[in-house]
Nucleic acid binder design. Structure first.
Lengths: 194, 194
DNA sequence: CTTGTTGTAGGACAGTCGTCCTATCGAGGA
DNA sequence: TCCTCGATAGGACGACTGTCCTACAACAAG
């Protein structure tokens, strides 16, 4: 049963881990953000790794929630994949400043050789599996996972360079190019099923 | 005039910043790697930021050296761009473990709001400007920078996902796809200048 | 009213951090 | 031989880290 305070800790840690990085965020930082004492903090999370695990779990949940939203808004697989492609525009301001939350956390945990690495990777997998489903529905079952990985790589590349250069025109251009690439895969379906 | 010890410090710091991250690498770590005392360390670098600046400078130099090597080995712009594309295979083992040195450092410095961020970005720019030159030589002067950014984004996306998933087949596949994409841009030139 | 549980606070603890200071070493010039 | 000066060593410093312990307040169960 999650307490309200516990929930606020997770939200603050989520935000700080994103903006400052996991390693560079201290207990005191999070406690200060939530306006509780470090002692109270320890009552909810005994170690830093426990918070990280809870944060990643929360990110998995919010990712799934976002995906459900896309599925409600867009009836076609093409429209849904387009939602994912456009995420680098939707979250453009944050990505320009702090990069992709999933990619940067994974990179950091890889360097730290952190036990939560596998859990962090699974956030990637939520996107990957869902994109694979969409490409399968689009009639490309045999290469669905490969296409999903390509879209995922696109978003990571654009996010990293947006974070490095801050060039919004570049993001717009790449999204447009990717949407055009996507349309070639969906028109192929229309031609097969008129 | 760089001392031999100073050079060894830079090399050790370069390696550790890559493998553990800048923030998570301490003075003691580097000193231990070089087998010198922390006091001696301070004689060469007074602050951590000074080491970082020296490391980034060294990376710029080694990047330019690698580029010169490519230019010596490959006479055509297409072959040279191919060298860059293949770098995610050449350095595959390291990237799988620690990600791209340029991308991960830039991401970390962005989160730390570090003054060396601009300098780190310039390592990206070395690649970007050189790729722009190559695409210009390939006869695509009007969109040379856009194509350079696309190749750069490709490498960052592939590196991030290779680091996350460790899927070598994915890397091979994406490199092949990217080389095919590149060949369409060079054949366009051959058609115009037979 | 007593007892026990739970949330909160504040501080103790040993360790590490970046930074800085001082002392010693060794070679080269006067 | 003495002096100088860069290279090296070793430790001191205050601040901060993650972790842990104890004390108190609120409140429900008995």
């Amino acid at each position: 049963m999650p307490t309200a305070t516990r929930q606020r800790i997770i939200e603050a840690a989520d935000d700080l881990f994103y903006r400052r990085g996991f390693d560079h965020t201290s207990f005191a930082d999070i406690a200060g953000e939530v306006h509780i004492s470090r002692g109270n903090f320890y009552h909810h999370f005994r170690t830093k790794d426990e918070i990280l695990a809870a944060v990643i779990e929360a990110r998995q949940a919010s990712t799934r929630a976002m995906i459900r939203l896309w599925e409600d808004q867009e009836p076609t697989p093409e429209g849904r994949i387009r939602c994912f492609i456009r995420i680098v525009i939707t979250n453009g301001a944050l990505i320009e400043r702090y990069g992709c939350p999933v990619g940067t956390l994974t990179s950091e945990l890889a360097k730290l050789d952190h036990p939560c690495m596998e859990q962090a990777r699974s956030v990637f997998s939520v996107f990957r599996d869902w994109l694979t489903e969409q490409f399968t529905a689009l009639g490309h079952k045999d290469q669905a996972d490969e296409l999903a990985m390509r879209v995922l790589a696109f978003s990571q590349g654009v996010a990293t360079l947006h974070n490095a250069f801050g060039d919004e025109a570049f993001v717009q251009r790449e999204v447009g190019s990717m949407e055009q690439w996507l349309s070639t895969y969906s028109e192929h379906l229309k031609r097969k099923e008129p």
